[in-house]
Design a protein around this nucleic acid. Structure first.
Lengths: 111, 111
DNA sequence: ATCGTATATCGTGCTTATACGATAATAACA
DNA sequence: TGTTATTATCGTATAAGCACGATATACGAT
């Protein structure tokens, strides 16, 4: 972005935003859901299920992999992906704590 | 994006992605946190706290407002914003249910 | 009426995201 | 070795996001 001011925020805010950004596309939500339900998936399976080209799916997988939410292994000619639950739970808990803290301040009086 | 294929996904996936996108910048995380803690904020207060120009803060506020997470009222020469808790809780619960369902399938055997 | 303050919006430049086809790379198999 | 199947990467085009300054707007105060 123009001039990246993101570094000037608190690390906690950056982490939450990174997690959110990884989830900020329905295809990636769908991919994560599929990986959870099937426990593991080869790329081709996902391509069939999603309304996207193979290269685009691969790109979304890379985004999820870069943020650590999934990991992949090579299995013969194909790639096998699955969720890295430790990372998923780390982010989920981080978000949960933030949201909980948010609602502690809740007051419906304003505006 | 190139050709918006997002409409071809399930509504639940789109909703979750929209929520995530709204949170996908540390400035917006910071804004929401500040609004919760102070219960209400005028735009100027936020501009002071954030390392961003006034117009940029206003832009982030608009994004949060468009997705419904905050609402604003005019108060004399300034704008007063606060969190729309009904919407916040709706999204939070939606995400919580999704994450919970995800972890139900958790198995650490793969990869 | 004029001035000052606060905020939203416009215009602009740059970066990132999304999507695809084409190609490269890798491995199983004939 | 050559072929096929699967996936990643490259190149490219378009859209969206981010950031800013400048300007417009709205209101209160002088």
């Amino acid at each position: 972005m123009a001039f990246a001011r993101k570094e000037e925020f608190a690390q906690k805010e950056i982490d939450l935003a990174d997690f959110a950004k990884a989830l900020a596309h329905p295809a990636r939500i769908a991919i994560l859901t599929a990986l959870a339900e099937k426990r593991e998936c080869i790329c081709g399976d996902l391509v069939v299920d999603l309304p996207l080209a193979q290269s685009t799916v691969s790109q979304h997988l890379k985004i999820l992999k870069d943020v650590g939410l999934i990991k992949g292994t090579i299995d013969g000619p194909r790639s096998r992906y699955c969720i890295d639950w430790k990372v998923f739970e780390k982010y989920r808990s981080q978000f949960g704590l933030w949201a909980e803290k948010m609602t502690k301040f809740r007051q419906d009086l304003c505006c």
